[in-house]
Design a protein around this nucleic acid. Structure first.
Lengths: 352, 352
DNA sequence: TTGTATGCGTTATCAT
DNA sequence: ATGATAACGCATACAA
């Protein structure tokens, strides 16, 4: 019966109108659930013929007419970093619930790529973008904001940009981690971090310092173990390998700290691995606290004590914020800050 | 200068034509890089005014006219499972290279959700879909294949479906793992798996049996440790927790095997954790081999010896196959099978 | 309640 | 080489 499957023409509301003996206007009215009054009998007939002809509406036509897309753009550094899939998941669940699809873009922290994607998304007429932006100047973003597309920034701390934000209190996160260590009796604590080029890392460091200060502990510059490598790949292996290097440096320290606070979980994994390789036991010899609470952190040995950054919530909230903004043209941009919390597991030893 | 930023009208080729004193036809010809001859002088003028007016083409208009979208749909179970982000990454890189965007959809292995997404994608006029399908009957897929949209299936073994496939030799993968174990002196090997409901798992088990057979080792039904729970969540925690349960069962075995082959890495992590908790050392007391080679498998303790399933390559290949199919209408569907390989790390002990 | 006609922004056909 | 104009599929202002 489907022998003409290859050649069958695209069915439009015009075909339905013809078949049902009515007009395209009426067909459109019932098929788009416009709520516009149509006599029940006719409505039924239209629905039936649509079914019969196996009609599938062309979203492009509708979008063009209403000049609005049913998709939102999502730009992240890379889906390879386990933090982002969770964010994307949160976004997608909320988006689907409200009838939107998501256009996923990995920028790899390359401003050029980011720019191209933004342009492309705008051309595709998305009316909203959720972005973890890397371009410090946000040139592309500035161009589109206030125009016709709403933007919600997350992950990176964007300044001087008139858009909604879903942020995270990195300072407090840093404090939480270090205060926990202090509470467990540690006085000499190292901070292992990838290059201190990003605002979030600087803030985490700030929290580290604040905690020390608060508890009257001296700040020792040598305890900040940062990689200086210019090139930085936003992927799992980079962070891990970097952690290993940092651990190697750590082992060179004269007065070796009893604990290491790592800028993120992946780095912590690398640190732990390298320490193990050198016969240093975690947490018996050295305690380690991570940052992010990616899912795997509970699966490694030892289970990592870390700071929870609510990735799924971030995505969900960012999406909710964006859609509210898009659908209620009057609403104002908001700035939300998510709170860190400590997840206690087995990578820290209590000093007595 | 941008004071009218809020109110500025959408710029179309019509505006450019007016400003440049030419016609929309000519404007379109130069702005769409049609290759159609336009006098150099005019071309330049058009380009300039487009720039001046800050013109941004409306992809919807173009798509509608040419009746082709520049996006492809990607449907996966869930981005939460670390295997898929890598696949998606491969897809995206290839797609971007060729000027396509990707519409990401998580089906959560729910046939209903999968169906809705397929419908939605078709309505958005995508001309290609890459899918890890769950619907056993592939009803929705059958409806669209051969119509106007190309489909490439991966991950799941789709049968009776006329579409391209990028598969993986699970049987051989299973064999590889078990033969390795045998080579290392293990004779009594357990297989720890989530419910044997999926074809891929059954095939892996098949490989397990084949390896035993090949080396004249007896097959012991009790060594197949499978969870029977009906409900199955496709997420990290499920696999991990499941692995823990399986390990608990393993510990009950009368003649305890010297090695465990896990159906995937996450399960292996759970197994390892539970074993550790019970004072069983890996690999000294029990050896473990995983399956998938997700990135974290190299980061845990001990680094996991596992079977590599090339996720990134799968994505890249699937996308390449799809785009070739879409762009060259004449080309035939293909079926590619990727080969497993063993990644030797530290979770297996050689028995002497 | 229904139908006619127009336009969304673009490309393509046909003249010129 | 350029321009007028008709689609693409849909939604809607306006008429009836």
């Amino acid at each position: 019966m489907d022998k003409n499957i290859e050649t069958r023409k695209r069915i439009t509301i015009y075909d339905i109108a013809k078949e049902a003996g009515t007009s395209t206007a009426t067909v459109s009215r019932v098929l788009s659930n416009s709520g516009y009054p149509v006599k029940e009998e006719l409505r039924k007939k239209i629905l039936d013929t649509a079914e019969k002809l196996n009609y599938s509406p062309n979203a492009l036509g509708r979008m063009l007419k209403k000049s609005e897309s049913r998709d939102i753009g999502v730009i992240i550094p890379t889906i390879s970093n386990p933090f982002y899939p969770q964010v994307v998941l949160g976004i997608e669940l909320e988006a689907r619930r409200r009838g939107y699809g998501i256009l996923l873009c990995n920028s790899f922290r390359d401003p050029e790529t980011e720019k191209k994607y933004i342009t492309s998304l705008v051309q595709k007429q998305v009316k909203g973008i959720i972005i973890s932006s890397i371009d410090a100047n946000h040139i592309s973003l500035k161009e589109i904001i206030g125009n016709d597309v709403k933007v919600v920034a997350f992950d990176q701390n964007i300044k001087g940009l008139k858009c909604s934000k879903v942020g995270f209190d990195f300072v407090k996160g840093g404090m939480l981690a270090v205060e926990y260590l202090i509470k467990k009796g540690h006085r000499n604590i190292a901070f292992a971090t990838s290059p201190l080029t990003r605002k979030s890392r600087l803030e985490t460091l700030e929290g580290y310092k604040l905690a020390l200060l608060k508890h009257g502990l001296p700040f020792n510059e040598r305890n900040i173990i940062a990689s200086s490598s210019e090139e930085e790949y936003e992927n799992v292996n980079y962070e891990f390998e970097n952690g290993r290097k940092l651990a190697a440096s750590f082992l060179q320290l004269e007065e070796r700290p009893t604990a290491i606070f790592a800028v993120n979980d992946m780095t912590a994994f690398g640190v732990i691995r390298e320490l193990w390789n050198n016969g240093v036991n975690i947490p018996n010899d050295v305690s380690v606290v991570g940052f992010d609470n990616i899912e795997i952190s509970s699966m490694i040995n030892p289970p990592l004590t870390t700071i929870n950054q609510p990735s799924f919530e971030t995505g969900k909230l960012a999406c909710k914020t964006l859609l509210d903004l898009m659908e209620d043209k009057g609403s104002q941009e908001v700035s939300i800050t998510l709170e860190p919390s400590l997840v206690e597991r087995k990578s820290v030893k209590e000093l007595v």
